[in-house]
Design a protein around this nucleic acid. Sequence first.
DNA 1: CAATAAACGAGACGGTACGTCGAGTCTTCCT
DNA 2: AGGAAGACTCGACGTACCGTCTCGTTTATTG
Lengths: 211, 211, 211, 211
Amino acid sequence: MSPASKDGSDQPVRPRVEGERELEILDATVQILAEVGYDLLTMDAVATRAKASKATLYRRWNGKPALVLDAILSQKERHDLPDTGSLRGDLLALTCGMGGLTDGTQVAILGSLITAVSRDREFADIFHRDFIGPKAEQNRQVFVRAQERGEIPRDLDLDVLVPALPAIILHRLFLLGDPPTEELITRVIDQVILPAVHHRGTPTPEPEGTR
Amino acid sequence: MSPASKDGSDQPVRPRVEGERELEILDATVQILAEVGYDLLTMDAVATRAKASKATLYRRWNGKPALVLDAILSQKERHDLPDTGSLRGDLLALTCGMGGLTDGTQVAILGSLITAVSRDREFADIFHRDFIGPKAEQNRQVFVRAQERGEIPRDLDLDVLVPALPAIILHRLFLLGDPPTEELITRVIDQVILPAVHHRGTPTPEPEGTR
Amino acid sequence: MSPASKDGSDQPVRPRVEGERELEILDATVQILAEVGYDLLTMDAVATRAKASKATLYRRWNGKPALVLDAILSQKERHDLPDTGSLRGDLLALTCGMGGLTDGTQVAILGSLITAVSRDREFADIFHRDFIGPKAEQNRQVFVRAQERGEIPRDLDLDVLVPALPAIILHRLFLLGDPPTEELITRVIDQVILPAVHHRGTPTPEPEGTR
Amino acid sequence: MSPASKDGSDQPVRPRVEGERELEILDATVQILAEVGYDLLTMDAVATRAKASKATLYRRWNGKPALVLDAILSQKERHDLPDTGSLRGDLLALTCGMGGLTDGTQVAILGSLITAVSRDREFADIFHRDFIGPKAEQNRQVFVRAQERGEIPRDLDLDVLVPALPAIILHRLFLLGDPPTEELITRVIDQVILPAVHHRGTPTPEPEGTR
DNA sequence: CAATAAACGAGACGGTACGTCGAGTCTTCCT
DNA sequence: AGGAAGACTCGACGTACCGTCTCGTTTATTG
């Protein structure tokens, strides 16, 4: 993300206080983000708050989306993978826990970034890799462990099943205007996810005669 | 598309036969939308194209999101509810058909509007009621008919199940960067939706002892 | 002052007695003029106040300057020509009296109209004929009577002398920022006007041999 | 006109050598002023012509009047005080010379500014101090020198006499629609100014009995 | 340890879109 | 028939933010 930094592979390199300055800027960004939201955040505001010049911001980041994304990523403390012993418990813990979908701030920011995602290819790539990727991987781990425990079949189409839970929750939030609650998450897990993973039999069978 | 416009049968210029002028503006909006996309669409461009003044635009619409939303809604020709005789067939037809999730243009605009949705309460209400609402109702009808046919249980939690399919597809598109295909939609239906609706038994079973 | 009101029977509203409606509009114009001044007066405001449509305004007047000018003219009650028996007394009375140069409102509006005068030929003609003309004629009368009394010579260049007093006063107001007072007017009369009219002898005399 | 600009000695574009950019903008303003006049001059036009952004204009100047005034002031080359040896000659030279009242451009601009003067207090102050002031001082000098030569009395009320000539000329132009000519100026000098300055005797005498 | 060249803060700049406002025209409806 | 009502086009306004740029000024190696 942060270009021209830590790799130290090119010119004599002799930047500033190394990545420390960068962190201050990212902090300022996160603060403003929390205060006014993505859209009302301006590069000028970040520059002022961080006592940096806009030139510095643009030297390091492509623009507002990249900066904000980086700022969010910098906040990522590794949220430990929960281990409750059951798929259901793990999903609940992961989804409702810190950094999960009930975390209003993160989710609000997420909404703000969707616009940027759908129009900036490069930004989208970074977003998918560094922001969505790790979260998705955690979710996948929960399913893989359940497979290893024998709780669910090994031949499930995890590519489809793993993102289903966050998908349904976020869809309700963004498109239906229905903010996530633990109760809702429970309903989705019990009525969609668990039936789907426990489903045994012909996965794609009946073309004509359903009954 | 442009309904009662430019038939060119009479005097020089003469707008205003009630909402006719409005439709011309919405048409211009849709054209520009198709040409340059939501972000590069400017109010000035719409005004110029429609030979309207910006004052007129702002007299009728709150701003760009409202105008664009209205423009899209004006394009809504009633897509007939498919009736294939099975839930699976109906879902496939509805989701892949015209105005469904494989319609790239609509979906791209959708992404652009999410920002506005999560920021403007009033806009969100209109969006939910007039844009999402009708689509959701169609989806619900498909499930209700399946219930009436006895194909699926009557005690399903449709509030959760109905939006699940679009949720998963759109989530893949917006957050995972995975554009919808018919093949994907089929997988989701067969591996998530149908198992969930056919799932019989304890809907929320193992509270404590999963193992 | 306010015409169209004197009948006192107004309530039921009943326009269109030819020039009566016009007077109501001019009254509204004068009111607004007094309240907010020329620049902040809008045609919409006049239309609203007079319960007229803008179309009506533009049907009768060319635009804002013409309307305002007409409104001012409508206020013109014939200010009687003073007759104090001396040129000096007449000038003082005329210049300081009602409708004279110490009337702040009229003078302020005058300033606003100068722009229009120097830009709109047609407007300028009306302005000169109907606004300036009568005032100038009154001033001229004062001089003519003085000539008839034998107080001043008959061969004076009145075209130059008559406008000199208002010229000097208005110049001080508009360009020097020095508002008119009776004291100032007195000084100008005594030190410029009277010396000039009493000047007898070589009109263009001295230094090198002008004649 | 454009003072220290485009010496073209170095790289492509590179403004900002202190007030140099400002002068370019003022030059553009003067050009447009000469072409279309004050009222038809728009900030956008100035911005475009000067290849500046409107933000830059508004960063430095309050608005159109301030910009235009500054532009005019920037054009002020010191017009040397004429010295013909007589008051009459000096007045003629000064009034008819460069920057005098027969200079159509300057006078046109003057007319345009009167409106602004009579409604913007701050603008009026600057206008009086920086535009009118220097010109008035030159006129006063002519009279003072005449006094020093003994050509005219030392106890004249110069505050009234000095502005009288321009007052009368401008009044004829703006309010009577009579453009200045050298012939007119001569008449005013000979029939008003000179009689007034040579007037000997009671300056403000006869209160009641003129006859 | 001074010279030097990168990176920096500050913030002006060109550009573009915004949303508002007033002028003057035009159409519809009402009386 | 004619006027009130007010929507309409046009175009200027003044503001905001973006991303670039040019200034001095640090700052940390390098000579």
